[in-house]
Design a protein around this nucleic acid. Structure first.
Lengths: 253, 253
DNA sequence: GCAGTTTTGTGCGAATAGTCAACAAAGTAT
DNA sequence: ATACTTTGTTGACTATTCGCACAAAACTGC
């Protein structure tokens, strides 16, 4: 065993990767499917699944395994440890009501943004968003604000973690163009994304800082493209967003 | 090792229990704290935590461990496998808008209800609710509907899993009274809870069935006590809720 | 019905993790 | 300053788990 990996528990790592193989496309999996999905030996995958079932994290009908709501405790254990959601939720509710549009807060995880708080005002997106939901960072306004706050080397690394599909005809997918856009976002202090995630949806985002000036999250306002032009968004939404940004900066550690 | 526990992986079980020791009250924990919280040897807890850190599920500053957003992938892996949230969300949005009040869907996990979908209309509760949030089943309208759908033996077991604190002066806490209330709920097909979770909050819930008639979830409408009397809720909200119940029944497998 | 294919379950040796105890380091109280 | 507690780390020994190979069972297509 290698020097630095002396204290790594293989069983735990394998079990967690087994949980992550369950997705919307594969909600019910047999032992072989799981084994193939995460590259484990069938015997090992079987033991992981039986362990999960024994602990109440999975159900087993003799053939297929499914995850149980108990798994949600793991995720909420994490959300609960974050002070950010509780702190921003009231500010977010007020902002959203004031502007009459949906507003969200997200943080970065790998190449994704993860929603941690949301105040929905009217339904704009076809996909349902809720705390814990994920979207790729490169094509979202919050993602661009968060990536713009990272050192350039780290950005390249994150972009290489996942493919950059063109979600709509307007999606920026060229890494160079994206890096240039991040530089622009860093300078102007906000990001606007115009129907790059989904046609008909525009979004503007600003970074959220803690009291030490570190970027800890991003906040956005999303609006139907038919309601507001892209350049109008700056005038209509940005001032109120900057206000929340300043308020939260005082509250965060 | 015993016969049925031959295929249980201790490392996985221990690692998951380590994740669950992180709560809002203990967001940052040292090795010893984790060790004490889940009854593991310090050496074992250390290896679990180092493994989690190595895999990106935790951060380590040399002294304290914190969970990272990556842990959320585990929980959302589960939410994503459930067809229910996607199916009910549009119905819930419509119902909520129609009635002008917040509406939610939840399922049972142990002695808790877990929110899986929510359409917020106005802020009634002091605590923020979102998909993944938990409340004790015994004192919530959705919890009572769900418990009423279980065999009586199972109900007693679930109630004994956790204490039954009186969250307000009106909370039912006597197990016998609760069992009687469940019987009433079962007969009438809905549950009303009047300020037992939180003062100022009333809620009415109905079970949601699949096409085979099994109870798979519960749906509620919550309202400020000052806006609607308890007996008014039946007339104002129940008919629309029954409509959604019938509609969903056709959609669910 | 039967052979071929896929999937699941089970020993066994090799490798790994868990326990316990000792030790070192840091903080606390006296 | 010294003794005492608490905490993190390491090593040795034991027990358990991993992954391979094989056996059994289920599912295919003829």
């Amino acid at each position: 065993m290698s020097l630095q990996e002396r204290d790594i528990m293989g069983g735990l790592a394998k079990g967690l990767s087994v949980i992550e193989t369950f997705t919307a496309e594969r909600p019910r999996q047999s032992i072989s499917e799981v084994s193939a999905a995460c590259g484990l030996d069938r015997a090992t995958a079987r033991r992981c699944l039986l362990t999960l079932a024994h602990l109440g994290y999975a159900d087993y009908d003799g053939k297929f395994f499914t995850l149980t709501p108990r798994v949600l405790r793991l995720g909420t254990a994490c959300l609960a440890t974050m002070p950010l959601p509780q702190l921003v939720q009231p500010l977010l509710d007020r902002l959203s009501e004031q502007l009459g549009e949906s507003s969200s807060v997200s943080i970065l995880d790998g190449a994704d943004i993860v929603y941690v708080a949301r105040a929905a005002q009217r339904k704009v997106m076809s996909i349902g968003l809720m705390p814990g939901s994920r979207l790729p960072a490169y094509c979202t306004s919050m993602g661009r604000v968060l990536l713009a706050g990272l050192p350039e080397a780290a950005v390249g690394e994150r972009l290489s973690l996942a493919p950059l599909p063109a979600r709509t005809s307007r999606t920026l997918t060229d890494p160079k163009a994206l890096i240039a856009e991040f530089a622009r976002v860093r300078l102007q202090g906000y990001a606007i994304v115009d129907q790059e995630v989904e046609l008909g949806l525009r979004s503007i985002a600003v970074p959220l800082y803690n009291s030490r000036g570190q970027t800890v999250a991003a906040m956005n306002v999303g609006v139907a493209a038919s309601r507001t032009e892209a350049d109008e968004m700056i005038r209509l939404y940005l001032p109120a967003m900057i206000g929340v940004q300043a308020e939260l900066r005082k509250l965060m550690r």
